[in-house]
Design a protein around this nucleic acid. Sequence first.
DNA 1: GATCTTCTCCCCCGCGCGGGGGAACCGGCT
DNA 2: AGCCGGTTCCCCCGCGCGGGGGAGAAGATC
Lengths: 216, 216
Amino acid sequence: MPIKVLLVDDEPLVRAGLRAVLEAQPDIEVVGEAADGAAVVPLVRSLRPDVVAMDVRMPLLDGIEATRAVLRSVDAPPKIVVVTTFENDEYVYDALRAGADGFLLKRARPAEIVHAIRLVAEGETLLFPAAVRALAAEYGSAPARAALERAALTDREADVLRLMARGMSNAEIAAELIVGAETVKSHVSAVLAKLGARDRTQAVIAAYESGFVSPG
Amino acid sequence: MPIKVLLVDDEPLVRAGLRAVLEAQPDIEVVGEAADGAAVVPLVRSLRPDVVAMDVRMPLLDGIEATRAVLRSVDAPPKIVVVTTFENDEYVYDALRAGADGFLLKRARPAEIVHAIRLVAEGETLLFPAAVRALAAEYGSAPARAALERAALTDREADVLRLMARGMSNAEIAAELIVGAETVKSHVSAVLAKLGARDRTQAVIAAYESGFVSPG
DNA sequence: GATCTTCTCCCCCGCGCGGGGGAACCGGCT
DNA sequence: AGCCGGTTCCCCCGCGCGGGGGAGAAGATC
């Protein structure tokens, strides 16, 4: 009997890609899709998947909350694999703490994705792929890193800085985080103040220099 | 005279979407469509498009080979923009090496797609659009550096980008280089155009991701 | 000579950014 | 109950930024 998988991602293209990759395997069957976390629990109840491939960042209910909701409210819950774009995404670890069984990168090769699904279906836990260790190893210089740690950014400020470091405007960050533009401005101002940066460009430079974000 | 665009994608839905987006612009005209790479060269010869929006993955002849074929066999070849679904598409960089002038993601917003077409039509190389990070992540900094070299910054523009990456304002850069503020603005604008960056922050990000500057 | 690129500087203009305030809500802590 | 930090949103305001033009001088190239 095949491994039944439920896909949860707000981007149709990502779902289509995962479906194509997984359904090419004879032992894997995609039994359903959801575009946001709020739809996950009912779908898990009705479809009884073995594995849920869950995006972290989604509108309405993110992957972390959705993971908690599934584990809390479903008997014999499925294995949950967190799907993420960036390996240094802090949310990934939150999701793992919330009870997820592993994670995989969207840029992973199809064979790796298939492998990950099979592993967690068998009860294994995928915690720290080589990519994450390698990234942690080449983390930034100690002084700069310490400086940024001293800055003591809040969770939300860290989110904003991460998106700033991806070149997003305030409006784009607001759309990404599903908050108002004024809210983003508040967070940006707080980040600039804490980092001692004059503008967003200096803040992004500090993020790179400290290893808060890393090239590649 | 409008920018003449040829669409090449095996998915009719994608072609329809691109056509709808591009033809909403008064200065852009979609002159033709092709469903696979094999049909591209004859169509380029007969239609003489300014820009070819080329999917990477296609039946018969993929976007990489089709790009090579066009550049090899057509005089005064059109600009070629690689269209891809996933930012980590391993073939994207191969296409850039084959001579493509830029790339864009299918999930990009209409305004970004239009912007990309206009930029490459003007002879710029489009590097930034969100995919640079993923490319650099998977293949290391060498490809991104090569891509930045393709941008062909002049000596002065490289000077300005280096100082931008140190967090300097236009006025500070002007003082550092002992030139007028207006001169710096000109160089900055040139850098942004060549990198396909929207603002100085994105330019600095591209500088880090490409290894043009390094943390530490 | 003519042409091209590069570097230099200038104009106007719109807008996003960042500073400076304030305020409401909520959860945690005392 | 009271306090406080975090998140959310609002106001006004000045200014640097970036786009779109143009233009002159120097050097390379043909």
